[in-house]
Design a protein around this nucleic acid. Structure first.
Lengths: 343, 343
DNA sequence: TTGAAAGCGCTAACAG
DNA sequence: CTGTTAGCGCTTTCAA
C-alpha cells in the first residue's frame, strides 16, 4: 500500500541505496552482478523513483510552464502542440496556464509556477507584462517570450517573434497587382503590440506599392469572428468603398466573409478578403481564404526547443532573438475588383 | 543568489523554523508579536515556500494531469477551460498531456505523471484504455474518466458521461415532425465507444418515432471537417435520397454544409443538417447549424470539481457516475424537406 | 567496487 | 506559547 522507495529496493537487492541510485542514474560503475540484482529488485517491486525527492536535491523539476491567453484560440493550439511535442520528447512536463487575457490572473499563475519550481516558462500570452518576466527571471527561471518584443526584455529572456512584414508585404502586393486601390485593414485591439506591428506592416507596404496609407481605413476589431462581422458593417459605409480588406487574423477574415455573404455579396468579386494565420478552417471554407501563413507548429517546437536549451545550459547569456518567417497563401477569397464596385 | 529558505526566515526573525512553518500554515497558535516578526522577515526576504519540499512530506502536490486526445479540437478546448478554472480557484496546477489519439503516447504520459506524483488525473481522451486507469489507480492517483463507460471502471474511477440520448432524441423528433423520412447518420469511427453510443441513440430514436432504422444509412466519418465532406459525396449516391442528415459532431456537419454548397445545393431546403457539440462556429456559419448542444464549459468544471473532491476526501469509495444532459438547439440548417428532393 | 552519512526544504510529533 | 528533532526519498560527497 505504501509507496515503494529506494530503500525497499536496496534492502531486497541486498545493497546500499547509493548503489541503487547509481545503477539507476548510471553515475558510477557498478559490477554487473550487483547491477543485475538491483535491476531485478526494481522490476519485481515495480519501483519508480520519486521526481519530487529528486527535484529537492537536484534543483530541477523537468517541468515548464506555458502561459497562454486562450487555449481555445485555434492559432495557439497548433503552437501548443509543437511545444508539447518537444517537451515530451525531452521528458519535460508542461503546466497549462490559461490567462484568459487577464494580467492579474497571469501574475497569479506565475507565482504558482515559481512555487512549483518550474525550470522554464514559455510566454505565449498576448496580454503579458514586463513585470511578469522580471518576476520569473528573478526566481532563476528561464523564460522565452513568444511574439512580443521590448528592449527591456533583452537580458531577461529569449524572444521569438514572427516576421509579419514579409508575408503582409506579399499580401499587399498581391492585392495591388490584382488592381485594388482601396484596401482597408481590420486590426486587432491596438493596445496590443502585435496588432500595431501588423497594422504598421500593412501601412508601410501600401506606401511601398504606391498607395497612400492615409486613404486606407483601419477598423479595430477583437480578433474574433464577431469582430469581423462588425467590421464588415463599418466597411460598407466607407467612401470610396474598399474593394479589398486585410484582416489581422483569419477569424476576423471569416467573420467578414460570412457577414458579406449574409448581405448578399458576391465574393470574391465584390470584396477580396485576406486573413492572417492560416488556421485549419481557412482552407476549408468557401471561398477558401487567401491568408498570410505562419508555421505555427514549428514555432511551438522552436520556442520549446529554445527554452530547453536555456535550461540545460544556462551558462550562456540569457536572451537571443529568433524570428520565424511568414508567407502568403493565395486561395479563392481574392480576385481583381469588379468594376461596379470600384466606386 | 541562492534560494531563500525557511531557515533564513527563522534566523532573521529570531525564531525556530517550526514557528515560521506554523505562522505560514496557521497550524497552531503563535503570539501576535512573534507572528509579526515572522511575517516581516518573510516580506523582507521575499520568501516563498518550496512546494517540492512540502510535497515530499505531505505526499500531495496540488497538481493534476489532463490526458487529452487533441487540444486543438474545439470540443475539448472549452472543457479544458472549465477544468482549468476550477483547478486554479483551488490552487491546483494542471499538466497538459496531449496524446494525439495515440495509446502508447498516452501510456508514456501516464508514467510521467506517476513519477511526478500528481494527485489526480482527468481522462479526457477518446483513445484511452482500461490499463491506463488501472496503472494510475494502482499508484494511488485519483481518476475521473470523461465520456467513457466500462463496467470494469466501476471501482477504479469516477465517470462523467454525456447523456446523448435526450438531445439526439429531440433532434430526431424535430426532423421527423418537420416531415423528414429518409435520415442518414454520419458517425465517428465506430471503434470508439462514443461513436457507437451516438449512433445507437440515433437509431433507437428513429424507431421510437416510427421510422425503420434499417432503412437509414450510417456513414462512418473521422470527426473532422474533411470527413463530413467525404460523407456528403456518399450521401448523394443513396437511393432513396436522404432529406436530412445527423452528424456525430459539428465539424462533420460543417463539412456537409460546405460540401453541399460547393455542389450548388440549396440549404436547408434540399438537405437538413444537424450537428452535435454546438462548437463556437456552429452559430456563426450560414446557415447557422442546428445542433445537439453539450454544456462543455460546465462539464469541464464538473469533472475537475469531482476530481478535487476525490483528492481532498479519498475516504469515500472511488467511483460514482455522473451524467450531464444535452439538448437540441434549432437554428437555420434544418427545415421541412422540399418536395423535389423527397425522392 | 561499494557503503555510510549528510543534507535538499519542509512538516509534525514530542517536549518543555 | 515555542523549540528540538526526526524524517519525507533521493543524490552525492567522503571513506573504505
Amino acid at each position: 500500500m505504501k509507496r515503494v522507495t529506494i530503500n525497499d529496493v536496496a534492502t531486497t537487492a541486498g545493497v546500499s541505496k547509493s548503489t541503487v541510485s547509481h545503477v539507476i542514474n548510471k553515475t558510477r560503475f557498478v559490477e554487473e552482478a550487483t547491477r543485475q540484482k538491483v535491476l531485478a529488485a526494481i522490476a519485481s517491486l515495480e519501483y519508480r523513483p520519486s521526481n519530487i525527492a529528486r527535484s529537492l536535491v537536484s534543483k530541477r523539476t523537468k517541468t515548464a510552464g506555458l502561459l497562454i491567453s486562450d487555449v481555445g484560440n485555434p492559432f495557439y493550439s497548433e503552437v501548443i502542440l509543437g511545444a508539447e511535442e518537444v517537451a515530451m520528447l525531452n521528458d519535460y512536463s508542461i503546466f497549462l496556464c490559461n490567462t484568459s487575457y487577464d494580467l492579474e490572473r497571469g501574475m497569479k499563475y506565475i507565482h504558482s509556477l515559481i512555487d512549483k519550481s518550474v525550470d522554464g516558462l514559455l510566454f505565449m500570452s498576448s496580454s503579458m507584462s514586463l513585470e511578469m518576466v522580471e518576476e520569473v527571471v528573478k526566481n532563476q527561471i528561464q523564460a522565452v517570450v513568444f511574439d512580443w518584443e521590448d528592449v527591456h526584455l533583452d537580458n531577461l529572456a529569449a524572444t521569438i517573434t514572427i516576421n509579419f512584414r514579409e508575408g503582409i508585404r506579399e499580401a499587399v502586393r498581391h492585392l495591388v497587382e490584382s488592381g485594388h486601390r482601396e484596401i482597408s485593414h481590420i486590426s486587432g485591439p491596438l493596445d496590443l503590440w502585435t496588432a500595431q506591428v501588423r497594422r504598421d506592416a500593412f501601412l508601410d507596404s501600401l506606401r511601398e506599392y504606391g498607395l497612400d496609407p492615409k486613404r486606407s481605413v483601419v477598423i479595430e476589431g477583437d480578433l474574433r469572428i464577431e469582430g469581423g462581422r462588425n467590421a464588415f458593417e463599418q466597411l460598407i459605409q466607407i467612401k470610396p468603398r474598399p474593394t479589398a480588406v486585410f484582416a489581422a487574423n483569419d477569424l476576423m477574415a471569416l467573420g467578414v466573409l460570412w457577414a458579406a455573404r449574409n448581405y448578399g455579396f458576391n465574393l470574391p468579386e465584390q470584396l477580396s478578403v485576406v486573413g492572417l494565420d492560416d488556421i485549419d478552417l481557412a482552407s476549408k471554407v468557401t471561398p477558401a481564404l487567401t491568408t498570410v501563413a505562419l508555421p505555427r507548429y514549428d514555432m511551438g517546437k522552436l520556442a520549446m526547443k529554445t527554452l530547453l536549451d536555456m535550461i540545460e545550459k544556462p551558462t550562456e547569456k540569457n536572451g537571443g532573438k529568433l524570428e520565424v518567417a511568414t508567407r502568403l497563401i493565395v486561395r479563392q477569397s481574392t480576385a481583381p475588383p469588379a468594376g461596379a464596385w470600384a466606386n
